[in-house]
């Protein structure tokens, strides 16, 4: 039986919806691919036609949120007076959108967003990383720091994923400690960029 593109899209969407519900109610670790397949009313083997692993489902879920975050940030980015503030604003709107996934974002950080995964291509998180870093590079240009080097981008990505990991485990009220950490990390990063730029001159 031929499966239409429409049916495929519907199945994919159903998998994402039930997986989100299961992750939220049972937790990421306790949810198996079998559980997801059952809830989506498909065979477990069929699930793998759509997603290679649970982590890929989380990444896909996060991608939608990050897309929304970018739209929100585009409206805010002109307000920022400094690069530090612009970067803070970017990550802050992402965290806001990612909030439903906070409890199970760590597996995504360990796989798709892992700083060491930069060399791997065509991984699910690759596009997300590329888009985010392009935004960061654009902000750096806009604030007069020119093109960011590969080292700078790698350093930034490490800080970024570190802040996300901290946020995922942050027990402070409304995760306020993450805001402080993020603010400080980005200030440190931008200070380093400026120092490096001055030395180049």
């Amino acid at each position: 039986m031929r499966i239409t593109a429409e049916a495929k899209t519907a199945t994919r969407q159903r998998i994402l919806e039930v997986a989100e519900e299961l992750f939220r109610t049972r937790g990421f670790e306790a949810t198996t691919t079998r559980d997801i397949a059952q809830a989506a009313e498909i065979a477990t083997g069929t699930l793998f036609n759509y997603f290679a692993a649970k982590e890929a489902i989380v990444t896909e879920l996060a991608a939608d949120s990050l897309e929304r975050a970018r739209g929100e940030f585009d409206k805010l980015s002109s307000e920022a007076e400094t690069l530090e503030e612009a970067l803070f604003s970017l990550v802050a709107v992402e965290l806001r959108q990612l909030r439903p996934f906070r409890k199970y974002i760590v597996p995504m950080l360990e796989s798709a967003f892992c700083p060491l995964a930069a060399a791997r291509r065509n991984e699910p998180g690759d596009e997300l990383r590329r888009q985010h870093l392009e935004t960061v590079a654009g902000l750096a240009r806009r604030h007069g720091l020119g093109e960011l080097s590969a080292v700078a981008l790698q350093l930034y990505w490490t800080l970024y994923t570190g802040a996300l990991a901290f946020w995922a485990a942050d027990k402070s009220p409304k995760q306020e400690d993450t805001l402080a950490l993020l603010d400080e990390s980005l200030a440190m990063f931008v200070a380093w960029l400026r120092t490096a730029a001055d030395e180049r001159k």
Binding site: L76, E79, A80, E81, T82, E84, E85, A86, F88, S89, A92, R96, K174, Q175, E176, L179, D183
Partner: peptide, 13 residues
């Protein structure tokens, strides 16, 4: 506190 940080604090609260 810069504006973006402030906004996050107000939003959160």
């Amino acid at each position: 506190m810069h504006w973006s940080l402030l906004r996050e604090m107000v939003r959160a609260e």
